[in-house]
Amino acid sequence: MTTDGVPALGTYAVDGRNGRVGRVMGRVGTYVQLRPPGGGQEWDCPPGDVQPASMGEVLRARVREVNAEGRLP
């Protein structure tokens, strides 16, 4: 967790506006960028709406990423 309360880069977080879980990829301006588990397009979330992901949410996100990596083209 950073000093402003935003989860650290590379960790999982929840967008409090809609409940989506994503990996913290960075910051652009005043927004935190989150990427869905398994890849996909990043989205911006205001820092005040970013919450640390629970252990269960982290586990589900990791399973999605592993499943996405194992898919054949």
Rank of each mutant, 00 (worst) to 15 (best):
G70D: 13
V21R: 00
R35M: 15
Q41V: 12
L9Q: 01
S54D: 09
R60T: 13
G40Y: 08
N18R: 12
V6I: 15
A13I: 10
R64V: 09
V58T: 15
C45N: 03
V63K: 03
N67K: 05
L9N: 02
V63Q: 08
T11C: 00
R35D: 07
G39C: 07
R60L: 14
R23S: 00
P73H: 08
G48R: 11
A68W: 08
Q33A: 09
V66M: 06
G38K: 06
D49M: 11
L34Q: 04
S54Q: 04
G40I: 13
T3W: 09
Y12P: 04
L34C: 05
Y12C: 04
V24R: 00
P73F: 12
E42F: 01
G48E: 14
P73L: 15
V66E: 10
V50F: 02
T11F: 00
V63P: 00
G40K: 04
W43M: 03
E57V: 08
W43R: 01
T3L: 15
G56N: 11
G10M: 00
T3H: 05
Q41L: 11
G29T: 11
T30M: 02
P52Q: 10
G10Q: 01
D44E: 12
R17E: 15
G22Q: 06
L59W: 09
M25K: 02
G39T: 11
R27M: 09
N18D: 15
N67T: 12
D49G: 00
G22D: 07
